[in-house]
């Protein structure tokens, strides 16, 4: 998360170009978005596909940050989360051939079915925020995993805080 602020600033600088591009998706074939590539020319000199390549999914997940965290039993976005999502929305607007599935998760301190519903709430909070920033709704799906897929396994807050998350998983391809 510590990288996020910097990443968001870089993207803000790039956003003017991105926003002029019409929001297209559908029919994309997984190729690199030329507009986005042009906009980033000269800023990065990293191997294609690595986290240093701003057009890569790795850049999205690692440099921008693919996840936002929530406080206990809440689905409200924190200011930090909104900053990350600003970065995500910029990237998604620049890379219209990518789709996203937003996964909602909960920590283990809750009953299974309630946590499924809570995960759905979190995923939806992220989806609605991205839509409010201009990402077309039909590029965004949600799925809740409740407490079924923890990434940190200890039973205290240091792990719980990582597990209460919504993760934006991007994939190239058309919308089914």
């Amino acid at each position: 998360m510590h990288m996020m602020t910097k990443a968001a600033l870089i993207l803000l600088a790039l956003s003017t170009t991105a926003c002029t591009r019409p929001d297209r998706f559908g029919g994309a074939n997984g190729g690199v978005d030329p507009n986005a590539a042009g906009a980033n020319g000269g800023i990065n000199a990293a191997p294609l596909g690595s986290a240093g390549d701003p057009n890569s999914p790795a850049y999205f997940s690692q440099t921008i940050g693919d996840r936002v965290l929530f406080v206990v039993d809440q689905s409200t976005l924190t200011p930090t989360a909104m900053a990350t999502l600003d970065g995500q929305s910029q990237w998604l607007l620049q890379h219209a051939d990518y789709l996203a599935v937003i996964e909602g998760h909960a920590d283990e301190q809750g009953t299974r079915e309630y946590n499924l519903a809570l995960g759905a709430r979190r995923a939806n909070a992220v989806r609605e925020y991205l839509i409010s920033k201009g990402v077309p709704s039909n590029r965004l799906r949600t799925v809740s995993y409740g407490k079924e897929r923890p990434i940190a396994v200890c039973s205290d807050e240091s792990c719980y805080s990582q597990n209460r998350r919504a993760v934006t998983v991007i994939s190239a391809g058309s919308i089914s």
Binding site: A117, R121, A123, N124, R127, T142
Partner: peptide, 9 residues
């Protein structure tokens, strides 16, 4: 059963 749409169940 429960059904979720738009984050509401």
């Amino acid at each position: 059963y429960s059904l979720s749409n738009g984050g509401n169940t």
